[in-house]
Simulated scan of single mutants.
Amino acid sequence: MYEKRYSNNADSERVKLESDVEDSYDIYPHPTVRVVRPKVISHSSWKEALTQVTHKRTLLGVLAVLMISLLLLILIVFMVQGNPQSEDPDGGKNYGLVAYPSVGQEQVINFKPDEYDSFRTWMDQIEEALYPYTPQRLSSERYINCDLRDRQGEEQCTFHIFDLGLECSHGKDFGFSSGKPCVLLQLNLPFRPGTVDKTSETWKKLYQTVGTRWNPNFVSVTCDGKTATDKDNLRHNLPKPMNETAMTFTPVTGFPLAYFPSDLEDDIYLAPLMMVQFRSLKPFRETTVECIVWAQDKDGNLPEVSQLYRTEFKLQLQ
């Protein structure tokens, strides 16, 4: 008997022929021909394969998002740790020397004197920092004039913003409209700054820089260009004997020691302030300014390397 098994859908190109060995009776003149149906993947198999691929892609997407989030978190932590004003030894407060406008070390306080909108943001930041010092907020009996006597108990020193001078006031646009910008400095410390040893090299630098502005009842502050080029940019068109007029400091003596140690947890505490005005900026030059409080911190670090006593910012007159 001749046997032929085949698939109705098979064509000549998809047929596979297989020969069977003749049986023992040897009565068949021809070998058995069998049509073998090719393997067909069912619809359910395709659906299952696609589902597996989709799951793999979803998993890879989730992993990619997690990796990007981790990298962003590391970047944020690095930026915060790199900012000297972020040092917070006791937690909860912004310690050290702080400058306003507050733009960070990588940004620039740029402005055009004849365009109010170019420096309005900088003015707003200074005014926001000065708001707690307005006369309306100084009505508490706990505020005293520390120039007249030492504070006692929970008393706090009062700081009057008119002590910052007329040139660096709102009425003068904080100097921006005249091309002579003012930067507000604030010193927040939970301890009393240590005085500089008069026999040290630091004292020699202090005296050479501060000169007659030094006062034993104050902490002296200096600001200057970070590099030689920056120093020249701050003294544009000034003869070298007149270098001291490139910047003015108000109050000239610096931060009063009477404010320290301070209770920064007290809501009415006012940290001391001073204004620095840059009067001879070279136009169209990005200039990095470094300000230093000339005192020793509680760890005995020199002011030049202390993160609490240094701050820097960039100026550009356009």
Rank of each mutant, 00 (worst) to 15 (best):
M1W: 06
R5L: 15
N8G: 13
S12P: 01
S12E: 15
E18Q: 05
D20I: 07
D26N: 13
R34A: 06
P38W: 04
S42R: 13
S42L: 14
L50N: 13
H55R: 09
K56N: 10
R57C: 11
A64F: 14
V65R: 14
L71V: 08
L71P: 00
L71D: 01
I74C: 06
I76D: 07
G82A: 14
P84C: 08
P84K: 13
S86W: 10
G92F: 02
N94E: 11
N94Q: 12
G96W: 03
L97R: 05
V103A: 08
G104Q: 04
N110W: 08
S118P: 00
R120Y: 13
Q125M: 15
I126F: 04
I126D: 03
E128K: 13
A129I: 01
L130T: 06
L138E: 09
L138I: 02
E141Q: 10
E141H: 08
Y143Q: 00
Y143I: 00
C146A: 03
R149F: 00
R149L: 00
T158K: 14
I161H: 00
E167D: 12
E167Y: 06
S169T: 04
K172R: 12
S178M: 07
Q186V: 07
L189F: 03
P193A: 06
T195I: 10
T199M: 10
W203Y: 15
R213F: 03
W214A: 09
N215Q: 10
P216W: 02
V221I: 15
V221F: 07
T227P: 03
A228Y: 11
A228P: 06
T229H: 11
T229S: 14
K231M: 03
D232C: 02
L234Y: 03
N237T: 12
P241G: 06
T245V: 13
A246I: 10
M247D: 02
T250N: 09
G254P: 03
S262G: 14
A271I: 01
S280N: 13
K282D: 03
P283W: 08
R285G: 01
E290A: 13
A295F: 05
P303S: 09
E304G: 06
S306R: 09
L308T: 11
L308M: 14
T311V: 14
E312C: 06
Q318A: 04
